[in-house]
Each structure stands twice: as C-alpha cells, then as structure tokens.
Design a protein around this nucleic acid. Structure first.
Lengths: 323, 323
DNA sequence: AAACGGCGTGAAACCGATTTCCATGCTCGG
DNA sequence: CCGAGCATGGAAATCGGTTTCACGCCGTTT
C-alpha cells in the first residue's frame, strides 16, 4: 500500500542498497547520489517501515517501562520524565503496569521482551519476589531499576538517597529546637521504606509506627499518637500521602500545626503544597533520576561496558509551613 | 540466537506452516499435530518474534496513546485505565506526550504511525489546531478521541457528559437553598471547558469568571469575588484544581465553607477528598471512558463498520463537605 | 464410476527493510 | 605501466514469521 524503499531507489535511479545507506546516513555514498535519494524520499513522502528495519537490524528503538501503578502521581511523574528523555533520543516508550502483583509483573515483562524492546526501565513491585523477573530480563537486555530496587539483585539502580533526605529533615527539625520526634512510615516491603526507616532509626531514634503508604494510615497513626498521651514535637512521615492524612486528622482533632507539633513528608508530590498547612517535605529529583536512568541505558546500548552501579541522587529539603 | 518456529516445527515433525497455524490457534490442523506442536514449543521455551509476525500480518497488537501531559493525575488515571483494558485484549501501549504543543503532537503521532500501531487513543491538545493531525491519523488507522475533542473533526469521541455534570451540581445546590451562584472556569480552549461553561450559562446564569485550569487562578478568582462585594451563595468551579485554590484562599481570608459559601469542583481528582473542607465534586467515570474507548477501537479492528459517534458518559455527583 | 467439495498439509512466496559480499572504477605509489 | 588499496554501488541473502497455492486424500453426490 505505502511507498517502499524500493520505490524511492527506483525514482532516484540507484539500487535499494544505496537508498538504504543514504537514508540511514551511512558513509560510502557519493554526495550526489545521497541528494538524489533524499529528494526522492521527500517527493514521495516516504515513511520507512520500522518493523522491517527492526526485524533485520535487531533494534527497535523502543524501551519498555514497567511501573507498579501508573496513576500514582509519583510514578506518573517518573514515566513522564523518562518519556521525555527517550523522545530526545528518538526512542519510543512501551508502558505497562504490574498493579503490585509479581506474577502480572512477570507476564508483562515477557510481553515487553516478546516485542523486542531494546532495554527496560523497571520499578520492581516487590523487594524480594521481583528478583526472578529481574534476572531473566537482565539476561536478555540492559535493565535499570528506578526508584525501588530488589534485594540481592546485582543490577544498576538509580534512585534517591533516602538517608540524605531523612537526615535533612531531622537536621532541619533540630534546628527549630525539636528534640522529641516520632516516625510514621510503611512496613518496609520495598527498598525505599526500608532505607528511610533505617536512616531514621540511626539518626533520630524516637518511636516508630509502621503501616502502609496511604492517607488512611496517616489518619490512624495520628489517632494513635494522640491517644498515647504526650505528642512528640515533630512527626517525620515516610511519604507525603501519610503526612497529608496526618495533617487532616490532626486538624480535625484541633491540634495546631506547626505550633503544637511539626510534621514533615517525603516525595514532594504536587499536592504537598496544597495541604493545610502546606507541607514541609523532601523533594525527589525525578527529572534527574529519569535522565540518569535513560543515560545509563543509552550508554549500554551504545556498547559501553559498565559494571552494575548504585546511583543515589541527593534530594533537597522543601521548607513550607508544616515544619 | 533464540528458538525459531523452524526449530519447533522440526521437533514436532511437521512443516513450518502447520506449526504457525497450530500456534496461532487457527482451524485446519489435526488435533494430534496441534498437540505435538504445542508440546514442542513448550519444551523448547519458544518465544515468537512478534516483529516478524507483525511485518507479515500487518498487525502489531499495539495501540498508541497520546496525551498532553502524563503527569497530570487526571490523564495518568486515563492512561492507566486504557492500559488495563489493552492488557485484557493482549495488546500493548505505546505512550507519548505532546506537552500541549500541536507541533510536537504532530511529530509524535507520526512516530507512532511509523511504528505501525494498530490504532490510536488521542487526547488532542488543542481544540482547533489539532485537527490536521487527527485527520491524517484517522486516514491511516482507527482513532478515538478521549476526554477532549477537536472542533469540526468528524471522528469518534468518548468522554463525559459535561452538561449532565454541571446540571447535577446546580441541582444539588438548589436543593440546599442556594439561588445566587457564580462560575469560575477556564477560557474555553478545549471542548470540556466550553461545554461546562455553556451548560452553566444555560442552567444557572450567575456571573462568570474565566482564567485557566490552575490553582493560582482559583485563588485569584476568590479574591475577585470577595472584592466585588457580595459573595454568591454557591461557587461552581470548572475543575477541582481551581476549586482547591479557591478553598485555600477563602480559608486564608477567613471565609467559612460551606457556612458562608458553598464550593463545588469537577473531575474528582484523588486530592479532592483531601481539601479543607473535602470537596463536593463531579466524578468522571474514567474506567468506563477508557473501557468504552478501547471497546470502540477493538470493534473497528475486528472489522466492524461503524459511523463516527459521540459517546457521552454520565458522571456522578460526589457530595462531600464543601457543598 | 466419475465428479465434486472440503480438509489437512507442505513448499514457496511474501512482508520491507538492512547487511553481506562481490564487482567495478579510480587513485596512487613503486 | 602495473598492482595494491580504497571508495562506491548493486545483487542477493537475511531477519522470522504468515499466507498463498497446489496437491493428495477422503467421503458424498450424481
């Protein structure tokens, strides 16, 4: 139906091989012929069939990305940033989600590999159970773990330096005269929560409440802290969602923030600024993380041999009203 | 490198053609041979090369989706819902974003078509300037517009019934004794804002303030309404972002919601519930919209001839504290 | 008994590019 | 003047499947 490279070659008066070389910018074609081919292609409005090219050259210029949940604004921002970076390199993004289910994750990765993606950006859904997918995937194409990482899997990871983030928060609170703090986080089923929890214990060591990364847990934790009697002076939350739930519940119960207690979050999701009061939190440099992840993959695809690395980018503290 | 269908056929003792037919579940293969082929495939851990299949069969089982901004939680939710639906039909999603730039949109769509997507789900970024992309795309593959639509483009659209949504809000407010209202929306550069504005004018007809779909505009509009003298009894906002800005500014100025004035939003984004007070709003049935969009495309791909339709799904009112 | 239709099968064509391999012509050094 | 070496270009192989086509076989109809 469409125009084939055959037609372009015929119009330019050269062979298919020469046309192919001219169009892909290879050397070994006289300038005159190259011009003729490019002109013919433009005149015919030639659109190469990338499937045929991919089949023969074994390169799809497509990267697969797997995230636990696309609608999570934090992941969505990462997806956007990765897509932007890929666009710059004229690559496309095949996106799929695991819904936090390791089995679905496995079958989705299989589907991506079937489609012959050149590389994979993965946010593994489980700290331990994702190890099998990661190893099989990594055996076939370059893979980089983004944000979360799998225990005991020796592959490249790009993420944020959670310890530095918690340190910034603790330090900031200390600077405001806060000595007694509590930590409200999630059970460490992924590497981020683990790292933040460990950092808090090492750096501050107040009481610790663990649930999940949800607003409801934030509310419940607020209740528990209040009922426990003496409120701490500062509450360090494991992420913004928890912190927002915390703020809502504290407000409902008439506790003033930051007068009675200071509250901090982690991630700086778009709505952190909208909280009442606005949330002091740790901003994840998502643009940078995505850029770094794509850069690593591009280097691997360009043939660079590099050992697995852990690239931890330092986050920055965003001071707002709540802390 | 990998196992080819050739190898499977050899092991099963049949021809490549028969193996292909057996694997793709076509009829016309004796049950005995089918079993032999499937067994051989399993034993060899055969993974078909979908590029080769796509090249010959002219079907990639891949759908392209173009959105204005992936990180917008409303769009991200749509992306997720579409991806889920595609997974059910064993299709993959090639995702790209236009950043609200019609030229980028054009080149992204070209890239998707180059990759031979079977169909396109588009959230066009501009009410008028997107018409060219839409027509060229629609000439090549089935296309469905999601959420937003392009003026004067006669293609299928799936979205929410904006008029019904505004009607529900107005009706609800009237039921609470509110008679004097105002509308704070966005300049109608896309079909949604247009529709909501028109509906408000037809159904209620109080004063109208137009800006953009941002929190800042919500704050500014709050100021203008207060400075204009008498506050209306109800403020109908064009979307949740505006409404959240409105709530923040009203709170800052000591106006009580809903005692002094009732405020409503539109979309029911995840953070509508988090507002102070929580936001009464109109929930967009995103799951259903995505399901419908994918259903329409699947039908077209299955060969069904259908005229362009406008599928407007009725939204539901979510009553919370603010209205 | 001859004609016919349908099913199962395999050989080969095909999808549309890239890449290999070889032939040619030209330049340059000896 | 000759042969080595390089740049250029075309024919054909290749990637790995799907699809077409022709053929043999069998049961049914005239």
């Amino acid at each position: 139906m469409g125009i084939r490279i055959h037609d372009v070659a015929a119009r330019a008066g050269v062979s298919v091989a020469t046309a192919s070389r001219a169009l892909s910018g290879q050397r070994g074609v006289r300038a005159e012929n190259r011009e003729k081919v490019l002109l013919a292609a433009r005149e015919l409005d030639y659109e190469p069939n990338s499937l045929a090219a991919a089949l023969r050259s074994r390169t799809t210029h497509t990267v697969g990305m797997l995230v636990p949940r696309i609608s999570n604004p934090f992941f969505a921002t990462l997806v956007e940033a990765v897509e932007n970076r890929l666009q710059l390199g004229r690559r496309s993004l095949l996106l799929t989600s695991s819904h936090y289910d390791p089995e679905a994750e496995q079958s989705q990765v299989r589907a991506l590999l079937d489609r012959r993606v050149d590389a994979l950006v993965m946010i593994p859904c489980h700290r331990e159970r994702s190890i099998e997918v990661m190893t099989t995937a990594a055996a076939r194409v370059p893979v980089v773990q983004l944000d979360l990482r799998v225990n005991g899997f020796a592959g490249t990871w790009v993420g944020v330096d959670g310890e530095a983030g918690i340190a910034a928060v603790v330090h900031h609170l200390a600077g405001r005269g806060v000595t007694r703090t509590a930590f409200v986080g999630a059970e460490p089923t992924d590497s981020s929560s683990q790292e933040r929890l460990d950092a808090y214990r090492r750096l501050a060591g107040g009481s610790v409440l663990l649930g999940d990364f949800s607003r409801d847990w934030g509310k419940e934790a607020a209740g528990r802290l209040l009922e426990a009697g003496s409120l701490p002076e500062g509450i360090v939350c494991g992420n913004d969602t928890i912190a927002l739930g915390m703020l809502a519940e504290l407000a409902r119960r008439g506790v003033r923030v930051p007068e009675d207690v200071r509250v901090t979050g982690f991630d700086d999701i778009p709505y952190a600024e909208l909280g009442q009061p606005s949330l002091t939190t740790v901003r994840q440099p998502q643009e940078q993380m995505a850029a770094e992840a794509v850069r690593v993959l591009a280097a691997r695809l360009a043939g660079e041999e590099a050992p697995a690395q852990r690239i931890a980018i330092s986050p920055s503290l965003v001071v707002r009203a709540s802390g």
